[in-house]
């Protein structure tokens, strides 16, 4: 199943959005995870956190209505909903580490079958820094990695992460355009696959050992 990046991201965002439950506080990372907001079901009300200092983050402002005092964690202009609130960084990370954030959705450079995540550094090549990612992955109740299954032909879902970790054993779920995997005590379980792929293809594009769920389903997106 070869799909363009844009379609792959749409599949991933739609599937992640189905994980969100009414009343949850959710942090969506920069990039692909941000797209999840576009697919939240109409009957599900969630509150979005932006770690630079707000809950109740709203949509992108109309052109000409940007407020320089209201930005998201990527530095872009956003709006706040009428039930939202602003706070400083210390409070923001109390929400994060304190387990008040129900779900965090992040991208990954690598993720492995033990729930380890690498997404902040490629030594000697790319050193953006961890920003808030380490705290989010450590503190949020549920950690979802949302990423394309492979990158430039390399399998990103490993037996063991080779890059420096963002956090150890904190990932709960991996959603790619090919399927959904859960990190369990038994190992990494493939629970859903996209209708246009096969279990064989997913196994071939995954370095981690995959346990195929006996109730394997087709992604309902």
């Amino acid at each position: 199943m070869a799909v363009e990046a844009k379609l792959a991201k749409e599949i991933i965002a739609k599937r992640v959005a189905m994980e969100l439950k009414n009343g949850q506080l959710v942090n969506l990372g920069i990039g692909l995870p941000t797209l999840v907001a576009n697919y939240i079901p109409k009957d599900v009300y969630v509150v979005l956190q932006s770690e630079n200092g707000m809950v109740g983050m709203g949509s992108t402002p109309e052109q000409g209505k940007e407020d320089k005092n209201i930005t998201n964690a990527g530095g872009q202009y956003v709006t706040i909903n009428s039930n939202g609130a602003y706070f400083d960084s210390a409070f923001s990370f109390s929400l994060i580490r304190g387990g008040h954030v129900d779900i965090t959705v992040l991208g990954a450079l690598e993720v492995d079958q033990y729930g380890n995540l690498s997404n902040w550094i490629i030594p000697g090549k790319l050193v953006p820094g961890m920003g808030g990612a380490m705290d989010l992955v450590t503190g949020a109740k549920k950690v979802i990695v949302a990423m394309q299954h492979t990158a430039k032909g390399d399998n990103k879902i490993k037996k063991n992460c080779l890059l420096p970790l963002t956090a150890k054993g904190e990932v709960d779920m991996i959603v790619t355009e090919l399927g959904v995997m859960l990190v369990t005590e038994k190992g990494l379980v493939l629970t859903e696959i996209h209708k246009d792929t096969t279990v064989e293809e997913v196994i071939q594009l995954t370095d981690a050992e995959l346990i195929i769920d006996e109730n394997l389903k087709v992604m309902n997106i």
């Binding site: 210390a90 990370f93 050193v127 961890m130 920003g131 380490m134």
Partner: peptide, 12 residues
Amino acid sequence: EVELSPQGTLIE
């Protein structure tokens, strides 16, 4: 010289 500190750790 860059000392990277996780954001929540840095502010604390």
